[in-house]
């Protein structure tokens, strides 16, 4: 039985059909919830609330659309409802994350940095054990204010296009792009600090 037929049966009250639909998407939804929340406990709450909400709204599901996408959107809403209200400092404006403009003396042609040079990453994979690096990264992603974390993960972890993300989070494409970039800049900056510190320690 295909998804459309299952959804039709579910809408008519067939629990087994609903359970089969959920089963096909549960691991992907759990993974999304885990990445968005950074916590197993929160991820379980999000999944549970999303599936219960799907029952409540099953009549509203349009048979011509994809059940997976519909369920995904419900899970994202649940994640936002749980996580977005947690207080986190906003990120800085994009320009603040960019390197200090490098001044070039036009007469002499010499280039002169007006801020300290950026730290060049030297094989971070070699500085850390794989699991340690993974934990650092997950921790940094989890620290991002929710709206940035959501946009970043949907773009690079779930590999949705900017337009798809804009649709699913109900924002303009410009605002979505800005969130993705700010998240990326903030993560880069924090990773750079951590790598530089570790590199200095290894060298001393």
């Amino acid at each position: 039985m295909d998804e459309r037929q299952l959804a039709q049966r579910a809408q008519a009250g067939d629990f087994e059909a609903f359970a089969e639909l959920i089963s096909a998407h549960k691991d992907r939804i759990y993974r999304l919830a885990l990445r968005l929340s950074g916590s197993r406990e929160d991820a379980e709450d999000i999944v549970q609330d999303a599936f219960l909400k799907a029952i409540d709204k099953i009549d509203q599901f349009r048979l011509e659309s994809s059940f997976g996408t519909w369920l995904y959107a419900i899970a994202l809403n649940q994640a936002r409802a749980l996580l977005a209200k947690r207080k986190q400092d906003d990120l800085r404006p994009i320009e603040d994350y960019l390197p200090g403009h490098q001044a070039v003396d036009i007469e002499s042609g010499r280039s002169e940095a007006d801020s300290p040079g950026l730290f060049e990453w030297k094989d971070p994979e070699k500085l850390f054990e794989e699991e340690e690096l993974r934990q650092i990264i997950n921790g940094l992603v989890a620290e991002l204010p929710y709206k940035y974390r959501e946009a970043f993960l949907l773009r690079y972890d779930e590999e949705l296009s900017v337009k798809e993300i804009a649709d699913v989070i109900n924002e303009s494409e410009a605002a979505t792009k800005s969130r993705i970039l700010r998240a990326r800049l903030a993560l880069r900056e924090k990773l750079s600090e951590i790598f530089e510190e570790r590199y200095d320690r290894e060298m001393s």
């Binding site: 549960k26 691991d27 759990y30 993974r31 885990l34 990445r35 197993r40 379980e44 999944v47 960019l98 390197p99 200090g100 490098q102 280039s111 940095a113 801020s115 040079g117 950026l118 730290f119 060049e120 990453w121 971070p124 690096l133 993974r134 990264i137 997950n138 992603v141 970043f152 690079y156 972890d157 990326r184 800049l185 993560l187 880069r188 990773l191 750079s192």
Partner: peptide, 27 residues
Amino acid sequence: CDNCRIMVDTLRQTVTLCRGGKSEPLP
């Protein structure tokens, strides 16, 4: 421009590093 080159390179690595966390099935 060294700063911009490093910026671009490390921003690229940021995404590579953040991608592909281990996937866990529903407990």
